[in-house]
Design a protein around this nucleic acid. Structure first.
Lengths: 233, 233
DNA sequence: CGCCAGTTTGACCAAGATCAACGCAAGTGG
DNA sequence: CCACTTGCGTTGATCTTGGTCAAACTGGCG
């Protein structure tokens, strides 16, 4: 699968480019999009360093080269709402507004490409295939958003955590041994739970032999069947 | 504002076309899009009648002329997840998959236009302005989706119901006296609450003078300030 | 070794779900 | 016209889930 380029509506969903990339590649527009990527600035961020903040001007979008990024905002009462995690190949910061609605920070040390929005828009205007790929990506993001809405609204804590582990497994290359670079804190804010609940659920999964936790940031899925079952409880 | 035409990623958000329509109108592409609308079939649905069901082929999208529509799916355990309400001018059924992921039913007696998807796609491929309008609409839907995710994940029952009333007020023409065509049932499934909780919250708002409930399906907002306050508690 | 950030566990509490009645208005049939 | 049903809506009593508060644990690092 191609992960070279991308103009993703990564504002929603996890922002991978999967089929969109593929479509573009197949349509022979890869060169044009690679040209865009040559306009990118390569930036390094340390753990917890800010990439942009709510309210900043939003003239760029980003693509993760390595490491992980969190996109979030603070609520009036001080709680934090974590909209998405982005890993290598994922795009973010494509909000379509002049001002950033969210902030972005590096979860771990991260390298990202920064691309000017207007150049991308020009390309997409001239290139129906790229536009179509972008639309498809956005539709997929939208579908993801609806799925997550469902989980947040109706699923138990255990189901949310299970779904999170499954999501991370799907998005990582290795399916069994998961590396979770983010602290429990971030997971809780992503799932609309407290850190204690996340811990408890993970512990209970461990007790039941569904997962193993060799270290806090490394989780192994032992019983995928049971995890799937737990995910739609 | 123009509400004549639309190719909305209405799968997300409430599916209005607001700024997107405007953009298209300004760019002088209105005629082309009106031509699309001439391909539409006008359909009548009675209250609770099915428009399409999960699993059906998804070759069309729809635009509500009058009445209201709910888009939903059933979960494995029999609960229902209500993804969106659509009113006059809103579009729905633009999922981008071959099979329907959701079902759609008329909430009240409704008239809808049904449009073939491929014709729309052809238009959008040939017309960068229309494509851009569509992208903007989808981005807005995505932003709505993230807002709703936030509410579903982190807000109290009272805040969800308050936000719902505000959303309905924003979307209806008259801002004070709200007509809520959907049963409490639907509201609960939209907000991820039980019908009892929705009732209780509405009753408490009434007790506090924030709203009046002349009849079950008609709600008057008496104290908008207090309602706004309740919405981000 | 001690400190510190992050993680885990336990005890208790509260928001909302569940279960169970009851109310109420719109049909429906005698 | 009036019992009776039926579909919603509302209210109350109890229970469960997950949040809150508090404390202990762990690993990395000076």
């Amino acid at each position: 699968m191609y992960r070279q380029i991308g103009a993703s509506g990564s504002f929603g969903g996890h922002g991978r480019l999967a089929a969109a990339d593929l479509a573009v590649a197949q349509s022979g527009q890869l060169d044009a999009l690679l040209a865009i990527e040559r306009l990118a600035l390569r930036l390094n961020y340390a753990r917890n360093q800010e990439i942009y903040a709510e309210g900043d001007p939003g003239g760029y979008w980003y693509k993760v080269v390595s490491g992980a990024v969190r996109v979030f905002k603070f609520l009036a009462d001080g709680r934090r709402y974590l909209a998405q995690f982005c890993f290598a190949g994922d795009c973010f910061g494509f909000e379509g507004t002049d001002e950033r609605l969210f902030s972005a920070e590096a979860v771990s040390n991260a390298v990202v490409l920064r691309l000017p929005r207007h150049a991308t828009e020009r390309l997409v205007d001239q290139n129906p295939a790229a536009a179509r790929a972008l639309r498809e990506t956005m539709l997929r993001d939208l579908a993801n958003a609806y799925g997550r809405m469902l989980r947040l609204g109706r699923m138990t804590a255990a189901a949310r955590v299970a779904a999170f582990l499954i999501e991370m497994a799907e998005r990582s290359d290795r399916r069994k041994k998961l590396d979770l670079p983010m602290p429990r804190n971030d997971i809780a804010d992503y799932l609309g739970l407290t850190i204690e609940t996340v811990c408890r659920v993970l512990s209970s999964f461990k007790r039941n032999g569904i997962i193993a936790i060799p270290s806090a940031h490394s989780i192994e899925i032992c019983d995928r069947r049971a995890l799937d079952l737990a995910a739609d409880t």
